[in-house]
Design a protein around this nucleic acid. Structure first.
Lengths: 226, 226
DNA sequence: ACAAAAGTGTTGAGATTACACCCATGT
DNA sequence: ACATGGGTGTAATCTCAACACTTTTGT
């Protein structure tokens, strides 16, 4: 049987400083020393790819910060890395924006809009991960994975704006998520800053497991009223 | 380096006799002789997974019949097949419903609602493929991959009904697809059957490359009217 | 004429954006 | 009082399902 190397890679995304950022580490050795790479590593003998990626990520970030992990795609070009062939299963990982996990010295966050020189095919993986996130923010409750446990609508607006790459209206964001039952008020409020203003109510996501909240409006079964 | 077997598998789907069917072949040898399996095979040394799956499928169906092929997911449980470990990259393949490709003697179409005894984890792959197709029919133009080059709205309704698993109204199907610009009239009509009726107009899909036709209605950029 | 199948008109429900307006707090 | 940020009311727009109605054919 033809036997091949197999690695898992993760694009770990977080909204930091109002921009969508990805966690990368700088390669110390050839090939491509100095280039920035996605965390990951070789698939172990007794683990599936999901288990493996969580194990590999533990070397870069405290896995307890990861609010969501999902498969993205296989990258399998015969020459995607130099040397012996390695197939990669790529993942998206998400970290809520209030966390600031400790990361190793060779590891940094980069805004996806200003990536450094990346290794191999990792830039393509990062962009695919970003697109996946943007799509799922629209039709699932995936916001829970980017938001802190409790938040104001303004704070949530910042997160969505950064992740989607365009302005989001706080008014309408609250209404859309509320209608879908995604937001639950905690009952608490936050006192306004020194400049005044009405105290903001704190919310949390009703459900912290991914689910489709916007079943596609078209071509739905007859008489399937929500 | 840890080296593993890697195979590609495809759930080739087609609407036949008003039901969504999948192409399976019957295993002649152990393990699981007699069970029905997805077409596929070992990844070659100099091909990526997309290339490989098309090559493997050529042994079962004339590849020219395939209107669309896309990655589905990686299946990587360490014991998903007996013997040495093999990781599978699974695909969805689609065949337009007017084709009846010649298939080998050990190969048959099965309705997804009445699967035979399947091999390994292939049933899970088939069901994932079905769900992927159903979702994409709603928010992309993927219907083109199931429909013949030209068709009446009734014929298209049959195809969508079979693929989605529920009744679809011809009236509303035509309106939704037309509004999205997916349908182009050919100008031709089909003469009615012996029972009479108005002649049906023939349509074709405007575009035969997959694209998202229903950009998610929510959380779209400000002032982005279509 | 009548039945059959195709296609159009129309209505009502629901969702979403944009924007005006009201609310609660700090200075 | 007034500025500031938070939150609600509401109108205009779109989309879609349902169903009545019209059109075009064969018998």
């Amino acid at each position: 049987m033809n036997r091949l190397g197999h690695e898992v890679l993760a694009a770990v995304l977080q909204v930091r400083s109002r921009s969508l950022q990805v966690l990368l580490w700088q390669r110390a050795r050839e090939p491509q020393a100095g280039h920035w790479a996605l965390p990951g590593g070789q698939l172990g003998a007794d683990e599936d790819v999901e288990t493996s990626v969580r194990r590999q990520l533990a070397e870069k970030v405290d896995v307890r910060h990861l609010s969501h992990v999902e498969q993205l795609a296989v990258f399998s070009g015969p020459d995607r890395v130099p040397g012996p062939r390695v197939i990669a299963t790529a993942f998206v990982g998400l970290v809520p924006s209030d966390n600031d996990p400790v990361v190793p010295a060779d590891t940094r966050w980069f805004s996806i809009d200003a990536l450094p020189e990346t290794a191999f095919d990792h830039e393509a993986i990062i962009l695919r991960a970003r697109d996946r996130l943007r799509n799922k923010l629209s039709y699932t409750n995936l916001g829970f994975a980017l938001a802190p446990p409790a938040f104001t609508v303004s704070a949530l607006r910042e997160i969505y704006s950064a992740a989607l790459g365009h302005r989001v209206s706080a008014t309408n964001l609250q209404r859309v998520l509320s209608r879908r039952g995604q937001l639950t008020p905690t009952g608490q409020t936050v006192s306004p800053g020194p400049t005044g203003g009405r105290p903001a109510a704190l919310f949390r996501f009703t459900c912290r497991d991914i689910r489709i909240t916007d079943p596609f409006a078209v071509l739905r079964p007859p008489n399937a009223r929500r």
